[in-house]
């Protein structure tokens, strides 16, 4: 029963208030992109056992999507942040490194 702090409304949101949205920071490939890129975008996932960047929507709260860095093996949450980013912000990376010194972004 996960709990995340929604970066928009500041509420410590229960899992039942939230909708999971899969991996974060996917780059969209539209018409004209290669088969490789499109397959990668839609289907291929690192499925990391460990640090994972993912999307959540505070659907039964403020309705906003946000992103989270979470360990899929321990369920530790390193931080939540705006969905309007293309990569994890520096403070999130720092927070992860503080807890997982061996981790490096894929």
């Amino acid at each position: 029963m996960l709990i995340f702090t929604c970066p928009y409304c500041g509420i410590a949101a229960e899992e039942t208030e939230l909708t999971p949205g899969g991996e974060a920071h996917l780059k969209r490939y539209g018409p004209g992109s290669s088969d490789d890129d499109f397959e990668e975008y839609l289907f291929l996932r690192p499925n990391a056992k460990g640090v994972h960047f993912e999307r959540w929507r505070h659907s039964h709260g403020c309705g906003k999507w946000f992103l989270a860095a979470r360990d899929t093996a321990t369920l530790e949450v390193f931080g939540t942040y705006s969905a309007q980013t293309t990569e994890p912000p520096a403070e999130i990376v720092t927070a992860i490194r503080a807890k997982r010194p061996d981790w490096s972004p894929a």
């Binding site: 899969g22 991996e23 397959e39 990668e40 289907f43 291929l44 996932r45 499925n47 056992k49 899929t72």
Partner: peptide
């Protein structure tokens, strides 16, 4: 469930989430 971990060892990714 650990297919992704083993695929990563062989340098490819899978359309899988655990």
């Amino acid at each position: 469930g650990h297919s992704g971990v083993v695929a990563n060892m062989a340098g490819f990714r899978l359309p899988i989430e655990s």
